[in-house]
Amino acid sequence: MFSLYKKELQSYFYSPFAYVVGALFLFIFAFPFITGISNIDSSQYKFSFPNIFYNNFFYFILLIPILTMRTFAEERKSGTEVLLMSSPLSVFQIVTAKFLAVATLFLTMLLATLFYPIITMLTGEVVWSSLVCGYVGFYMWGLACIAVGMLMSSFTESPIIAAVLGELAMLLLIFVDNLASSAFIQSIPHVSDVLSWLSTQQRFTVFSQGIFRLGDIVFFITLSVVFLGWTIISINKRRWSRG
């Protein structure tokens, strides 16, 4: 399983792929950072990094499907799926290894953004509690998105379609949040309860305030596990109905 993990991770770096997406990630991060800095008139200003995540959710969320689009679609397209499926690895192991590889890549990208807080730290002050929790929250939330993206990739043979499906799923995730806070839904208590339970942004807000809630962590982990499980089912299902 480690071999597969290693190969998956390496495959991102063989092509300019990881570098381009990583650069884009940092770029998206840089803009609000610059505007944030330019708005500061006192050197004692406390800079809130989670705000950057929070305010630019929309952009970050659309990067995830680009990372996950190739996971299964590409294997199927190039015929290498046979190699994995006829190897002693189980589908569970294959999915796990691939998930961990994308999770590691995402972590690397996230760690690269630490560059900004470090610069801020040198000249100003950073709110550590909200920074750390914000990062943890963002990562957990990213993991769930990766699982969703992988599921989309397992549906198709074309990485492009996988990416488009992934983007749609991400938009849906954002939409659930907006829907939950809409006046109409708010007026129906039960529906609004369920929808806000599913809302990822609200949970992220809690993280960004520097608060760890066990429930939120469990929520994101459950979400990831459910989607990974679904991915396993989807791959097994394809084996049965192929042709």
Binding site: M1, F2, S3, L4, K6, K7, L83, L84, S87, P88, L89
Partner: peptide, 8 residues
């Protein structure tokens, strides 16, 4: 080397 790896 990768294939050898997944084959254990």
């Amino acid at each position: 080397s990768f294939v050898a790896g997944i084959k254990g």
